[in-house]
Computed example of a mutant assay.
Amino acid sequence: MTTTDRYAVFGHPISHSKSPRIHGLFAEQTRQPIHYTAQDVTAEAFQAAADAFFANGGKGLNCTVPLKELAWQYAGRLSERARKSKAVNTLARQTDGGILGDNTDGIGLVNDLTLNHNITLPNSRILILGAGGATRGILGPLLEHRPACIAIANRTLDKAETIVAEFADPDLSCSDYAGLASRQFDLIINATSASLSGELPPLPGDLLAENGCCYDLAYGNRPTAFVQWGLARQARQSLDGLGMLVEQAAEAFALWRGIRPDTAPVIDLLNRERKALNLSG
């Protein structure tokens, strides 16, 4: 008899999560016997909930807002990319019972940008808005592609300065939003959650270079405020993070199951579903 292995995503709030749907599609495609659920877990309850999940036979967890830093602390072992980012979105129980922490966000973003949307990263000028855990998670994989520069802009400069000091890359710099005046970038990535509530940082109108692209790590059934900002400035592409969500999930699935699913049909299906939802609404 085939054993069905248990996986879950923890977060707060979590009801909007597409992760159970995505991993269900991956399991169907690869014929892997898994059961994946979403559980609303607050930061205060995380330690006990994770302990209970693994004690009861759970094989792996995804962790989203506000738990990624706590998951980094929870893991007994860390991948190199998790160690550098100080944030974990994937926990995997090892054969000896230990818990490995990994961060698949950065590779998920890079794969969506380069493979799905043909956006060039080498020698490009990149701006990241925000200096939280999301920025930490994507920075390493972006730097590996050797852009001309990456700038981090944040309301409070000291948070951005801390990240720049930790990554210590000569092509990495930071500023507050006022410091962006007269600068232009080929790719602007919104790593804040503000655009989901219709808010944006104070950005200069000419910040996006000609033929530049915008990318919001957040996603929704309708264009986020930042996606709309990019469209209003004639971005070549202005994208949300649905593709990144699927790509990072595929990396987690491969870590857990040893097989990487094909992401293209899943992304296509989810995009068609939300298009149909918007048309019906």
Rank of each mutant, 00 (worst) to 15 (best):
V110R: 04
T90K: 08
E80P: 02
K68E: 04
F26V: 01
T64W: 02
A48N: 12
A87V: 14
G101E: 07
D102W: 02
N89I: 13
V88Q: 03
P66K: 14
G57D: 11
A55M: 08
A87L: 10
D105W: 08
C63G: 05
G76T: 03
V88Y: 04
F26E: 02
L78Y: 05
E28W: 05
Q94P: 00
G60P: 10
Y74A: 12
G101V: 10
S85K: 03
G57H: 07
N89T: 13
F26C: 04
G101N: 06
L78P: 11
A55S: 14
D112K: 04
N62W: 07
Q32P: 01
E69Y: 02
D105F: 07
F53N: 01
S79A: 07
A43D: 09
A82L: 09
Q32T: 14
G97F: 12
T64V: 04
F26G: 00
A75C: 08
L25S: 05
D102Y: 01
I34R: 14
R31G: 08
F46G: 01
A55V: 01
G57Y: 10
N116R: 03
P66E: 13
A48E: 15
A87G: 09
K59N: 08
K68L: 11
S79V: 05
S79D: 05
A87K: 08
T90A: 15
L109Y: 01
A87C: 09
